[in-house]
């Protein structure tokens, strides 16, 4: 019960043949070699597998790859330009927004989605948006500071 699907991943058209039960996360990691997105909880709670589907953040661990057929996916690998990091990535480095790093791809993708939706979010908006991205090192203050820094127009 394999299916051939077509995805646009980080701006590049990709065709891949997968079993119907393949999650989008496994498809990205194992079939397309994009191992930036991580599997944490596997049930949509922790946010480590966050990617954008047509610009909206989703949990790729509970999305079927076949359901994404014909759609656009953005992963952590698609954020940086050739020469420079995405402003959110740079802000996480400058403000120390990560510790062990496992949750970081999901945090950064979620933060990018936040700034796409709300360019200058309040702290309350940052907290509400990011509450689905867990950091077991508990570095939440630095993550919020990083997002605040990325949102400042002077840094963009």
């Amino acid at each position: 019960m394999n299916r051939k699907i077509r995805l646009t991943v980080n701006g590049t058209a990709r065709a891949v043949e997968i079993p119907t039960y393949r999650t989008l996360l496994d498809c990205l990691r194992n079939d397309l070699g994009l191992t930036g997105s991580k599997e944490g909880c596997g049930v949509g709670v922790c946010g480590a597998c966050t990617v954008l589907l047509d610009g909206k953040m989703i949990s790729s661990c509970i999305a079927l790859a076949v359901s994404a057929d014909g759609h656009e996916i953005t992963t952590i690998e698609g954020l940086a330009g050739d020469e420079r990091l995405h402003p959110v990535q740079q802000a996480f480095i400058d403000a120390g927004g990560f510790q062990c790093g496992i949750c970081t791809p999901g945090q950064v993708v979620s933060a990018k989605a936040l700034l796409d939706a709300i360019p200058n979010p309040s702290d309350a908006e940052i907290r509400e948006w990011m509450l689905g991205n867990l950091c077991r090192c508990t570095g939440y203050y630095k993550i919020i500071e990083s997002i605040r820094a990325a949102a400042q127009p002077s840094r963009a």
Partner: peptide, 26 residues
């Protein structure tokens, strides 16, 4: 039937349900 999949895919991953056919409404 599958729509967003948040409930069904989670239950399938946990082997609580094992449908042989999925019909997406998406």
């Amino acid at each position: 039937v599958i729509a967003g999949g948040t409930a069904l895919v989670t239950m399938m991953r946990q082997r609580l349900v094992r449908p042989s056919y999925l019909v997406s409404l998406r």
